[in-house]
């Protein structure tokens, strides 16, 4: 199919650290370019919507049910993230969560409680669609059965504001693989789009060998990237590593998000993977959310990392209360 799109500047994603995850704003460039009307019409026909600027949030690795060490706060960072999102001047229409919604549990009853608690907290985000993919803690032991029961399918796609989103599952096989069947599905799903269509893939594990000896890779990630290679405006958002990371493969940009529970050590300098110690003075240090912003005339998605508010927990007394509540939440649920 002959593309009518501006090949250089379809999508720009900006990001800001919210300290609760990531907030994204998407500003498709086409609307201000010559020929943009035809392009918009084409995408509207394909997606049901023409591209338009918008922002969305990425949360990751909420690990509901985790009860430190190193992090004694339980769901407090997640709850703060929800409050931060609800306090944004421009509320996002879409929130994606890139896996490990729950922390795994020995009993299925306990794990089910954690899914319920995740849903209870995330449902407080006002006015936004919430789209999720599983992490290995959610789906690694039962092939994704409980995830599907509470959250829906483990892989799927949808369109939002002219952008095509693909949720990929690279955990429920037990091993870090996407699998031939899912890759074939993705190819088929993408076949209706021109090569310049804006595509955002979100998944849990990195789709490249970030640090295989730390289990930070997807064994058939190259097959996924080869399937995406013909498309010129692809962004991959993922979690799992509990820290920010940027990697570019061909034209595809890949961003890892911080977690909402604890951070892992820096793979470039640390001899082994370890959770970073809890800092009582800065309880949400290294945690956060991400906002993605599109730019009307840009060529990149702009990532905005947003810090979590901690004012209400300032001071020793506040911190003691916070820690106490965090533990109680984790045990009660």
């Amino acid at each position: 199919m002959e593309s009518k799109f501006d090949r250089r500047s379809f999508l720009r994603v900006t990001g800001t650290a919210l300290s609760i995850g990531a907030l994204y704003s998407v500003f498709p460039a086409l609307t201000r370019k010559a020929g943009a009307e035809g392009l918009s019409r084409t995408l509207a026909e394909l997606n049901g919507e023409a591209p338009a600027p918008f922002s969305f949030i990425q949360l990751s690795d909420t690990h509901v049910g985790f009860n430190g060490p190193p992090d004694p706060l339980g769901t407090k960072a997640f709850e703060s993230a929800v409050a931060t999102i609800n306090g944004l001047k421009n509320r996002p229409e879409l929130v994606i969560v890139t896996g490990d919604l729950t922390h795994d549990a020995d009993s299925t009853d306990e794990h089910a409680k954690r899914f319920k608690l995740f849903k209870a907290i995330s449902s407080k985000i006002g006015g936004a669609q919430i789209k999720v993919v599983p992490g290995e803690n959610d789906a690694g032991l039962d092939g994704g059965d409980m995830f599907r029961e509470f959250m829906g399918p483990t892989h799927y796609s949808f369109d939002h504001r002219g952008v095509h989103f693909i949720a990929l599952d690279n955990v429920s096989a037990g091993r870090p693989v996407v699998g031939a069947a899912q890759i074939a599905w993705m190819k088929s799903d993408l076949a209706r789009f021109p090569k310049t269509a804006p595509i955002i893939v979100f998944t849990h594990r990195p789709l490249f060998d970030l640090k295989p000896e730390w289990d930070w890779s997807t064994r058939d990630g190259d097959d996924v990237m080869n399937a995406l290679a013909p498309y010129e405006n692809v962004t991959v958002l993922y979690g799992h590593i509990h820290r920010e990371n940027f990697h570019q493969s061909g034209r595809t940009k890949m961003y890892a998000a911080r977690s909402l529970i604890f951070a892992f050590s820096d793979p470039a300098t640390a001899p082994e993977k370890k959770p970073l110690p809890f800092d009582k003075a800065h309880p949400f240090k290294n945690l956060g959310i991400r906002r993605v912003n599109g730019n009307a005339d840009g060529s990149d998605l702009q990532i905005e990392e947003v810090e979590l508010a901690t004012a209400e927990f300032s001071g020793t007394v506040g911190m003691d209360q916070l820690i106490k509540h965090g533990n109680a939440d984790a045990q009660d649920e």
Binding site: A105, D106, N137, R219
Partner: peptide
Amino acid sequence: EFTIICDHYCGTGHG
């Protein structure tokens, strides 16, 4: 020196 990992998820201590 080389590290071998379990890469088949086996529970909360798997990492």
